[in-house]
């Protein structure tokens, strides 16, 4: 058993995969959870899930798609897992704006306004504008119909427009 562990430690050098995806994964987690601490924690879950169920990917896109989907799944289960004692349940979470962190760098009004959206809308906005995914890809990733994604984006844009009135010259 110890021997196996030792072999594993040598063989399982995952730092490449961490380097490659940690930022993408972290930013999605951040856009869903709204704070750094949860984002880092969810990021851990994502990579541990990769570790638990390693697989061969047919292409780099496939690998990335897997990470995006699993990240979104982990974000969802992070807030719904019955075994996690959390301060805020998902329903209540909807009523809370994301908690800005004192140590966070000062961010612009657009970023702040996006972060003030409900998590479901934030994630769609992030995937659409930051990851530049298509509606179809987002639908596949978050496991919702395309129409739902469109409605999230539509509502998000409406809220942002409201929030950013007079900020057109930022």
């Amino acid at each position: 058993m110890d021997e196996n562990k030792a072999v594993c430690r040598q063989a399982c050098n995952y730092s490449d995969i961490i380097e490659k995806y940690s930022h993408t994964v972290y930013r999605i987690c951040l856009s869903y959870s709204g704070n750094r601490h949860d984002a880092e924690d969810i990021m851990q879950d994502v990579f541990l899930r990769y570790l638990k169920k390693p697989r061969s990917f047919s292409s780099a896109e496939h690998e990335k798609a897997w990470f995006l989907k699993v990240t979104v799944n982990c974000c969802k289960s992070f807030f719904t897992s019955p075994w996690r004692n959390r301060t805020v349940s998902l329903e209540e979470y909807e009523h809370l704006p994301s908690q800005p962190d004192a140590e966070d760098e000062k961010c612009g009004p657009v970023y702040e306004a996006v972060m003030a959206l409900p998590p479901k809308q934030r994630i769609c906005v992030h995937l659409y504008y930051y990851e530049e995914m298509t509606i179809k890809e987002i639908a596949g990733t978050i496991g919702a119909p395309e129409s739902t994604v469109k409605s999230h984006l539509f509502r998000a844009r409406a809220s942002l427009e409201e929030a950013l009135k007079g900020e057109h010259n930022v």
Binding site: C8, N13, R27, S31, R36, E40, M43, Q44, L48, Y111
Partner: peptide, 21 residues
């Protein structure tokens, strides 16, 4: 703004440790 958001060094270290074992 999002480009500037990065996981902390500490969390990456933790992750590497967790994944090695």
């Amino acid at each position: 703004d999002m480009d500037r958001q990065k996981p902390s060094e500490n969390s990456i270290e933790r992750l590497k440790g967790a994944m090695a074992m």
